[in-house]
Structure formats: C-alpha cells, structure tokens
Design a binder for these strands. Structure first.
Lengths: 211, 211
DNA sequence: GTCTATAATTTGATAGAC
DNA sequence: GTCTATCAAATTATAGAC
C-alpha cells in the first residue's frame, strides 16, 4: 500500500529488458517484446527510458557491474596467491553457472560497439584491477611461489578456461548433443579440474625446459 | 572474355555479404550495405539470392565448412597423440590469427538460431569428428601415453585456450588497451605456451593426486 | 543481368486522451 | 502514470523498364 509499487513498473521494465536483450542482443531485441514481457504498453517504455538505446545502456551498465565484483574481493583478500587463483577459477565458474548466457551477451555487445561499451564498462576500474593482478603475480614469481609467467597470459588462460564453455554452450550442445543437465554437471566438475590445470602449470613447469 | 565474369557477380556478392555479416551479424547487417560493398544494386541481391535469410545461409554454411577441416586432417594422420594435440593447438591458433573475427561470429549466430544452424553445420560430421577424437584419447590413455582424462574436458580446454582470446579480443583490447600489433604477438607466443600447458597437464598430472 | 522506382512491412518513437 | 492511435523512418522485397 506504500509507494513500493511506484518503483515496481520501472523495475519490471528493467527485468523484462534484461531478459529480452540478453536473449536477442541489442539488434535482435524488440521494444514490443520487452513491453509484453513487462506486462505494460510500448509507449510506457519510452516514458521511463526515452529510447531503446538508453534502456539498453542502463541494463548493460548494470549487468557489467555485477560481473566485476568477484575478482576484486578475491584479490583484496590476504590469502596466498595460489589460493586466490583457485578462488578466481572456482567462484567465477560458480557465478557463470547461475548466469550462463552473460559472457556471450557482454562480449557480443562490446564487439558491436567497442567505444561506447568501454565507457559504460568503467574501463579505468577494470584496468586498475588488471594492474593489481599483475602486481601480485609478479610478487608471487619473485618470492618463488609460482613459476615465471606473463600475467596477461595467465589471466587469459583463466578467463578462457572459465568462460569459453559458457560462451560456446549453444554450439557445443548442438554439436555434441549435450543436455542442460549434463552440461551443468560437466561445469561443476570443471571447477576443480580447471583450477588444478592452472595451478599445476604454475607450480610444476619451469621456464628452462625441465622434465 | 569467357564466362568467368558470370560467376564474378555472384562471387562479389558473396564476398561482400561475408564481410558485412561477419562485421554486423545477421540482425545488424543491411542489404543495402552488402550491395554497396559489392558495387551493385540492392535488387540484384534478391535476384541472385531470393532473401536476406537465404544469402546468409549460403555465407554461413560456407564459412563453417572452412573451419572444420584442420582437425579432420590432423586426427587422420599417423602421428603420436601428443603430437596431434600439439598440432590441434598450433594450427588452430594459426588459422584464427588469419580470421580473428570468425569464432565470435559463428558462436553468436549459432546462439541466435541453434536449430537451423545446427543443420547447416553438418552436425553429424562434427559429431563423428568428436567421436574419433574421443576414441584416440581413450586409446592414448590405455597405452599410458597420457594420463586419465575425460575427452570432452580435454577438447573443451583446447578450444577454450585457443579461441577465447579471439572471441574476447574487442573486450580485452578495450579493457587492457592492447594494440592489434601486440595482440598479434601475444597470440603468436601462445601457440607454444598453450600447447605446453595442455600437454604438460596430460603428461605430468596423475589422477590419484600425486605431485 | 542489371537498374530505377516503389511496394509492403516492421519498428522505434510521439501525440494526446484519460 | 498509463493507454490507444498514429507517425516517421528504416529496411526487406518486388515490379517492370532496359
């Protein structure tokens, strides 16, 4: 009976827009479908968010923010580097299992419009995140905790192993014929195996070409 | 002076369509732009390929085919399994460096329309390719050439490490601020490092949790 | 085969009543 | 704030001359 319901329409629109944009992408999404999904009229969309572009911006910026948090808190903790890397794998995959469509959506939209999305993505913040990761990796190398490695390479390996399976999910499923259920189980088991792959590589291999 | 030029218009259209579809995706692509790119009139597009959808189908099916060849020939060769895996990494990355936008394009379009693209992709052929890969991996395990591993996991790791950097290229570049030139160099160095990561894992690790 | 209109449809956006 | 009706622009597709 309060004004909670005032917010509700806007929230309902955002929720619907999120769903439709994620499913169809900016170009494929239709304002009419978002309106239907929100149970309101198309004109009302423009009343709350002037244009399709603006509505998308709000949705996209919001979604991006949610996907940056995990790495920040992990890097800020005081665990050993190896432990942080394990968490970066396991918690990322955990999050992805809850939102399997997110990485493809984000990457597609960034590719469609790099300049604008870079601004929306708070590039400076992510960039500083990478710098901090880089610093900690170099520290770990200096202290002999891990082998010599290029931080960019390491981050790329982690992100690749974590995220590609979700990005390629539709393709993988249609090619190998994998049910959602089996896919889910596979991802769960990868939390451990990917972490071991990454960490094993950091521990065992030597740069001078040992065993 | 022969009829080579009869083919040429169709070929020019296909080339232009390839470029535009890859850059903008099906939903973002415009017939007008394809016509401009081909240096012809819009009506002529419909004369050669009834509809946008049909034109896309031809382009997409053709592109997909080109991206399946490498793994086939490698698996069919008589090299040791480890060597085949090294080639699957190195030759795939080599190919991707020449067509960096392909994996994101293919994956996006499959996600947009899984049923149809699955048919276009000759799913049966790819499926048999995976079965053959799976067979050879199990053989390698039985003969002690590599450690015990799930073939799906292994293939996912290879594809992830090979292809994610290209899929995420626009995002990575805008976030880390990586020039095309440095990106290219990074990928070149990854041909070796990724192969070593995969192979090192297959050789060194044991399933019973040894060092 | 290739072009110049032009039709037909879709779709984002606005006007104006309530 | 919310709706109905409608506009204006964009875009795929076709008709018909050459």
């Amino acid at each position: 009976m309060k004004e909670e319901r005032d917010i509700t329409t806007e929230q309902r629109i955002l929720k619907a827009a999120r769903k439709v944009f994620i499913e169809y992408g900016f170009n494929g999404a239709r304002m009419q479908l978002i309106a239907d999904e929100a149970g309101i009229n198309k004109a009302l969309l423009h009343y709350y968010f002037r244009s399709k572009e603006q509505l998308f911006d709000v949705v996209f910026t919001d979604l991006l923010a949610r996907f940056q948090i995990a790495f920040f808190t992990i890097l800020a903790s005081d665990k050993p580097l190896i432990e942080k890397i394990r968490l970066m794998v396991e918690e990322d995959i955990e999050l992805l299992m809850k939102h399997p469509e997110m990485p493809l959506f984000i990457i597609s939209e960034v590719a469609r419009n790099p300049e604008k999305t870079a601004r929306r993505a708070n590039a400076a913040k992510i960039s500083s995140l990478f710098k901090e990761f880089s610093r900690q990796v170099k520290e770990g190398i200096a202290e002999g905790e891990i082998r010599e490695v290029d931080p960019i390479d390491l981050l790329m390996n982690i992100l690749s192993l974590n995220r590609f399976p979700f990005i390629g999910k539709p393709m993988i499923q249609s090619v190998i014929g994998l049910s959602d259920d089996r896919f889910q189980k596979l991802m769960k088991s990868r939390k451990r195996s990917v972490a071991e792959l990454i960490i094993g590589d950091l521990k065992n291999r030597t740069t001078t070409g040992g065993k």
